[in-house]
Nucleic acid binder design. Structure first.
Length: 140
RNA sequence: GCGGAGGGCCGGAUGGCCGCGGGUGGGGCGUGUCCCUCCCGAGGAAAGUCCGGACUCCAUGAAGCAACGGUGCCGGGUAACGCCCGGGCAGGGAAACCUGACGGAAAGCGCCACAGAAAUGAAACCGCCCGGUCUGUCAAAGGUUCGCCUUUGGCAAAACUAGGGUAAGGAUGAAACGGUGGGGUAAGAGCCCACCGCGCCCUUGGCAACAGGGGUGGCACGGCAAGCCCCACCUGGAGCAAUGCCAAAUAGGACCCCCGCGCGGGCCUGUGUCGGCCCUGGUCGAUACCGCCGCUAGGCGCGCUUCAGCCGAGAGGGGUCGGGUUGGCAGCUCGAGCCACGCAGCAAUGUGUGGCCUAGAUGAAUGGUCAUCGACGGGGGCAACCCCAGAACAGAAUCCGGCUUACAGGCCCUCCGCGCAU
């Protein structure tokens, strides 16, 4: 199973870009996993909101495509080595678990993208408030 | 105590709350989901993917040959290795110890820059020595016009030399057809001698690499094989996205080319035709077709050949275009496994007994947060101590054995040298 490529950026000069590391939640029926590359690409073309510690993409799905909240995470090699990417995605997942179950809207796809240093270094309460802020802006 | 060498081990700790992946057992019902309980859940390198294997397919096995590639002192270990252990040799170090692409240069080809007289056929060149010519001088003899002249022999030095001897010396270089010393000679030279080096022979020790001793040769063998090469040994390719199964969808693929479609073989329950016999249909025979069996041509291996094996008159080989390539399960973690003790061995390792089960994910779990303790570090203070900060390299993806690379800090053992004390 090939993970998706990291987002193309202007500074991508290295030849073999490592795949991004992502994680999905398997919580109770309310939240589901984003597992298809196509779903990530659709979310990338929808609304987005950046904060100092993350970038959040959100998309309201058409009727009948799927039920409930769906979420996926992306941390490209730009975040760091494998240990740094794992740590970043885990912190993002914990923040999403705290926020999204209460404030996420059914019928929407969310993709949370980690950033280079702040996703790991930012204190956890601020990480949570960043996600809450992004969701408020996206739901308008 | 200080400095150094070798080896082994560890890789932040405890607890609360909230979570994640897998599994055992139990329960609820909507029968494939939910809930509860308990258990397990990253590394010494999980890394680089550089070697060696297991396993799977290509492709059914064996033998031989060839090609490509690899390895390279000797012995041992191992499933195997380019790994490990022990030994030898060479180099380095005061020592402990470290380092080593370490087979062959009298099979052949090639190369040896710069410098140098010359870079491997050994000779040319400079130089050295002898001889010759010429000059000077001394002695003897002869002649004399008493000034000298001639001849012979000796000595000396300069110049010239179309002759001979020589390889000791010649500023170089990584390397110069052995080194040092002595004898010898016209000058020299293994020409001769002693020691060292080298080759060969014998012998002692050792499984061997090799080492010791003796004799002998008279020096004949320059370096590079990490340039080609020779020799010995090993060696098929692709990889778990291998591979197998299930389900769904789509196609139920199309077209073309090559080779072949053979046997007066056999059987028959069939069908048709012909003929004989009994007579509205049976029976017997012949023949054609279908079917089955057999034989053969032929076909089936990454390069080739042979043998065996399999398929076989439709099986095989090849090409072009089109479609599809999603989900689940297996592979998937019990294995050259881990721990303890004993035995054999210098060791690598082997073996016996007992005990243990120790991740199995797949947009990919193994975490988040808080508290306490905390190595190294930074700041202050004479000091006790106080304050700040809070852990290196790094994340399993089929599994093992190695190698290599990265790494904060700490612990243990052995050894070498120096200093102090006894």
């Amino acid at each position: 199973m090939t993970p998706p490529e990291a987002p193309k950026t202007g500074s991508s000069s290295q030849g073999n870009r490592p795949p991004a590391v992502s994680v999905c939640l398997h919580t109770s029926g309310q939240m589901q996993v984003l597992a298809k590359r196509a779903d990530f690409l659709k979310a990338a073309r929808a609304r987005k909101q950046g904060t100092s510690s993350m970038l959040v993409q959100a998309r309201k799905r058409p009727e009948g495509e799927a039920d409930g909240i769906r979420i996926g995470f992306t941390c490209s090699k730009k975040v760091g080595n494998a240990v740094a990417r794992n740590r970043a995605k885990r912190r993002l997942r914990e923040a999403a678990r705290a926020v999204l179950l209460a404030q996420g809207k059914p019928g929407w796809d969310y993709v949370v993208i980690g950033k280079k240093t702040d996703t790991i270094a930012r204190p956890f309460p601020l990480l949570v408030s960043d996600l809450e802020y992004a969701l408020r802006k996206l739901h308008k």
